[in-house]
Design a binder for these strands. Sequence first.
DNA 1: CTGAAAGCGCTAACAA
DNA 2: TTGTTAGCGCTTTCAG
Lengths: 334, 334
Amino acid sequence: MEKKISITDVARRANVSITTVSRVLNKVPTVNKEIAQRVDQVIAELKFRPNPTAQRLAKGTQNTAVGFVIPGYPGIFHSFYAVELMRGIGHGCETLRLDLIFHITDGRNPLRSNFAGGLIFADIIENLPQVETAVHENTPCLVINHIVKDLDVSYIAVDNVKGGFTATEYLINLGHKRIATVTGNMQTQAGIDRFEGFQKALKQHGIDCQPDFCFKGDYSRRSARQAAERFFSLEHPPTAVFAASDDMALEIISVAMENGIKVPEDISIIGFDDNPAGLFGPVALTTIKQPLFAMGEEAVKVIYDIMMDKQIGVVHKVLAPDLIVRESCSQPSS
Amino acid sequence: MEKKISITDVARRANVSITTVSRVLNKVPTVNKEIAQRVDQVIAELKFRPNPTAQRLAKGTQNTAVGFVIPGYPGIFHSFYAVELMRGIGHGCETLRLDLIFHITDGRNPLRSNFAGGLIFADIIENLPQVETAVHENTPCLVINHIVKDLDVSYIAVDNVKGGFTATEYLINLGHKRIATVTGNMQTQAGIDRFEGFQKALKQHGIDCQPDFCFKGDYSRRSARQAAERFFSLEHPPTAVFAASDDMALEIISVAMENGIKVPEDISIIGFDDNPAGLFGPVALTTIKQPLFAMGEEAVKVIYDIMMDKQIGVVHKVLAPDLIVRESCSQPSS
DNA sequence: CTGAAAGCGCTAACAA
DNA sequence: TTGTTAGCGCTTTCAG
């Protein structure tokens, strides 16, 4: 462990003042060529690196870095959801020339927001204490895709009610009347909201919401399988199903095929997420795409405004999801 | 744009010294309860945030952040290669309690390495000038998967020669004698090295390397198709093919199927990359897996040692790739 | 063209 | 328990 060398060491060795060293560091043109060269040489010899912290302090540079906090569970980097968000945030930071600091954390550690001027939280479930701390420390914060009630914090989220509504209305407009749904985990906002959108669409088009057609799932393939088996064993089975996730939609398609039921001829299936996995398999999945990339990008803009005091108070934004039509839905045959 | 408030403002307003404010900021327990409370209140009123830069300078904190530089081309976050690397680096940073700063860049901008104590470059092709600058500024640097010749910089790479060798030898051990290859882009190190490994394996096992069996591809599916058509039209076609990428391997399988040639019964195909796409499709692809995650993790360790002066001079590491046996290879039938 | 000196905002002895 | 006084390593007037 060598002792840190500073600008003073360089100055001494080159027989100049630290001011001059600072000048060559900053490429001030008014420095004598020879001296500059000598200084450069000493810098190289000593392998001197100016301390960026001190530079920033002296220059009074604003802290232009945003931290992106994501849960560190395995597979996070393979999650379509997280990666899309990252892309958007990465792009946003690039545009605004902000540094992007990743905080991959299990939510336990205090999260020293060392250099970050603002924090974006991707998943609040594990990180709620960290959000609270950050808010309490006056750190600009933004939560993605989670509508926070108990805390006065900004958020930007996708409109899951609208997503459920859009999916269901699409089915209705295709001519379906017997529409079922398998919901997401009803402990989660997304699960509740997507189901609400489903009901709303039915109601608005004067279609009854049969209890038989509403299966409370939990996003798991297992629950989707149970739902599908229930639906298919009904005397009057549905002609269309809205699944609250692509994963579940895919599982329903599997069950259908196992039972010789054709998609979309015999039954239409629509998912939610626009997971690339929906592209493979026997039929490309029609689904609802969350504007993940846009959300990430927007998140950066918002946090930037907050950091720069252009924005006072918290901001709440809700983005609309898009319908992606592929092959798994058609008009009812009967 | 409000004037920045500093610890002095807080001190004045709370009628205490800045030291006391500093103490409550750092939660030093020896502060009078009432005073602490008063200070806290003022902090809240003024929405004061301590300047992290000044804190770091005063505390003399080491710069424990590593920058990860990746090209900003679209789709980078969906590239299996890049994402695996990120995962490894993310994990490494977490383990070493380092901050991770992403620099998503097109290679044009100067890359102000603001807070990073060290830099890891994921793809040197677009970023070479940045690497040069960084090296010149004595910034600890590490290049991933590119063996740099003209620059005295550390790198950590995968052994592509060994990868090609392993793939080919596996085919040989299965009993194949008529082995073809479609190479990657021979302008790239990976392309050259994998081909070299192929030749080396053949030679070592006393098998002639027929020119007919060596097709110079470029990683594209198009080139793989041409290669496959050539191979299949030969009087004595090969019984096995080593493709320098999974993409190409998959295309060869497609061509084979179009021609009624069965994989692996009639012909064995081995790829390179362990791309998840190889899992789908009619036969799961046998392939060579690059230790991407491990490489990222290792990269962090190495840059850390360099940053901490535990490591003097540059370090060059080469990791061995692994054979992943799945379904696309078998013993030759004839 | 160069250097002395005064900070940048905060922490950390050292006194009081 | 609180305040005074030096710095942290660098930039930046302002003289020379």
